[in-house]
């Protein structure tokens, strides 16, 4: 047997295609008739597929496959919350990526806030997507932007950055203070900071 499962190219290999086909069928079935949970520790079969997607489809395809499963199962906020809480970092990332498609309101914000408290850049990058752009309140959103600068998550990852940054004088102050702190310490100011700062400037002042 082979010790590792690797895709030679960017396409799902044949076994992964078949696996995904079955997994999507189970997810679609759950969407049509949600199974009754029998115990807090027993998971629906599509949820087990959600957990195992990395090894069956390859780590590079895991985000895509997991978010597709969530959308096919039409996972509601309770399900998304459970999968996030029970998930590995990779599974939590997929839940965050799926939020804009599945949760129209702000009720999944606690998951975004949880991810923003971590220092795991994979989770931070997934947390600052379109769902955060729509729902994250100003204070938390500014801290999320600052945290990206702290941890090296490229600010291009922050969804809708120009719109939310525009006229945000408080964000501008935080960025300037951070730049001052870096300069005082003799450390370089990240180029991304200047880019975000430029976005905060009202057009008439630029």
């Amino acid at each position: 047997m082979t010790a590792t499962r690797e895709d030679p190219d960017d396409h799902l290999h044949e076994a992964a295609e078949a696996w995904l086909h079955d997994a999507l069928a189970e997810a679609a079935q759950a969407a049509a008739a949600p199974p009754e949970p029998t115990s807090p520790y027993v998971s629906a079969s599509w949820e087990l597929r959600f957990a195992a997607a990395g090894r069956h489809c390859g780590p590079r395809h895991a985000d895509f496959v997991r978010t597709l499963l969530l959308r096919t199962a039409r996972a509601d906020p309770d399900t998304l919350t459970r999968l996030y809480r029970h998930g590995t970092a990779a599974e939590r990332r997929a839940v965050l990526l799926a939020l804009p498609a599945l949760v129209p309101g702000p009720e999944a914000l606690p998951l975004v806030e949880d991810a923003l408290r971590t220092h795991d850049t994979r989770l931070l990058a997934a947390a600052v997507g379109p769902y955060a752009a729509t729902h994250l309140p100003p204070h938390a959103w500014r801290h999320a932007v600052l945290k990206c600068l702290f941890t090296g998550v490229p600010v291009d990852t922050v969804a809708d950055l120009p719109r939310r940054a525009r006229h945000d004088t408080e964000l501008a102050r935080m960025l300037r203070d951070h730049a001052d702190e870096r300069t005082a310490a003799g450390r370089p100011v990240p180029a991304d900071l200047h880019r975000v700062l430029a976005l905060t400037v009202p057009p008439e002042e630029s």
Partner: peptide, 14 residues
């Protein structure tokens, strides 16, 4: 160790 833990089919070493 690769052979033993590879029995899981879940080792990813890249």
């Amino acid at each position: 160790p690769v052979a033993f833990y590879g029995l899981s089919g879940r080792l990813h070493l890249d």
